[in-house]
Amino acid sequence: MKIRHDLAISVSVTSQEPFVSKNLFIPLILPIAVSIIAGGTAGYFATNERIHDLKKSNGSTREIIDPDSLRDAILAQPEIVEEAFYALQAKRQAEADAAKRGALVDSKGALFNAGQDPVIGADDAPFVLVEFFDYNCAYCKIASQWLRTALKENPGKIKVILKDFPILEGRSKGSRESSEAAWAARLQGKDKYETFHFALMDARGGFDSERIDEIAANSGLDVARLRADMKVNAKAFNALIKENMSLARSLGIDGTPAFITGNTFITGADTKKLQSLLDAAIAEDS
């Protein structure tokens, strides 16, 4: 967690003694509180200097609480510091969510117009889901179990746009190669792609070339053609991954799985939330 050092203290003055409003005090107290309690003498003088700056910036009509009074207040109610952490965390989360919503508006074309992204399900489905995934991601594998069941139980109701996002490459073996193989598999037909996609999701452990070829063969793919298509389309695949990485970055996505439907983000394998959104979309379409 980052600690801000540029926050002022809001104080209401009703008499000779300053009155600190707790609601205003909570989200703003943390930087100075930590300085005073944890910083000892150095923290005290650093805080004095900061308060002097605050006095100058706020003008002569504003009263600023002094370090001794602030320290006494915190020691009398130490839970204020904990509350400040939570308030600051909530504020940062709200800011991040707002930024995501703005980025989502700007990115809807790239997200929901599949382009070269693989698609499974019905093109005209009422529930459209975008997934950023990595074949080595354990939580992606959990989410894929829900997705496969949902597709079977709700024919014609779900469309999934799959954004290859091999973020675990370098930490888990074969994240990028398995994505490249699956992307090439779509050229052999939508059904074979879907079978291969879920077979890769079912697999445990990393992937080497031999294992990818074995899973491909068991999925009904022509492995020689698959490898040829991977070679021919390597440049296009690299461009796709670069585009997906850039899109994910603009949306604040830094892990997998990440889902988007409409204006809603779902991070992690939150299958209850996904099911709730699916049910709502189907009910609205009925």
Rank of each mutant, 00 (worst) to 15 (best):
D134V: 08
K56D: 15
I64E: 07
L30I: 06
T47F: 05
L162M: 06
A280Q: 12
V13F: 01
D68G: 12
L168R: 11
A125V: 09
G220H: 01
A185L: 02
E153T: 15
I80Y: 02
V20F: 07
G205T: 01
V119M: 00
L151C: 13
A122W: 03
I80G: 00
A234E: 13
N48L: 10
M1V: 13
A84E: 04
T61F: 06
I212L: 14
V13C: 05
G39F: 01
S286T: 13
R92C: 03
A283T: 11
L129E: 06
E95M: 00
F265N: 05
S175P: 12
I260R: 04
L75V: 09
A216P: 11
D202V: 12
N48T: 10
A216Q: 10
C137I: 07
I120V: 15
A110M: 14
I260Y: 04
V119R: 00
P257N: 01
I26L: 09
S35I: 10
D202P: 08
A185V: 07
A73Q: 07
L30N: 00
A138D: 11
A228I: 08
K157N: 12
A76T: 10
N113G: 11
F207M: 04
K173T: 15
L111W: 09
A236I: 02
T61W: 07
E177G: 06
A103E: 05
N58Y: 10
A96N: 03
L187T: 15
A138W: 00
A98G: 03
Y193E: 09
E83K: 09
M201Y: 11
P257G: 00
W146I: 09
F259E: 06
S15E: 12
L88A: 11
S276T: 14
A87N: 02
F25Q: 08
R101G: 12
S172Y: 15
T14E: 10
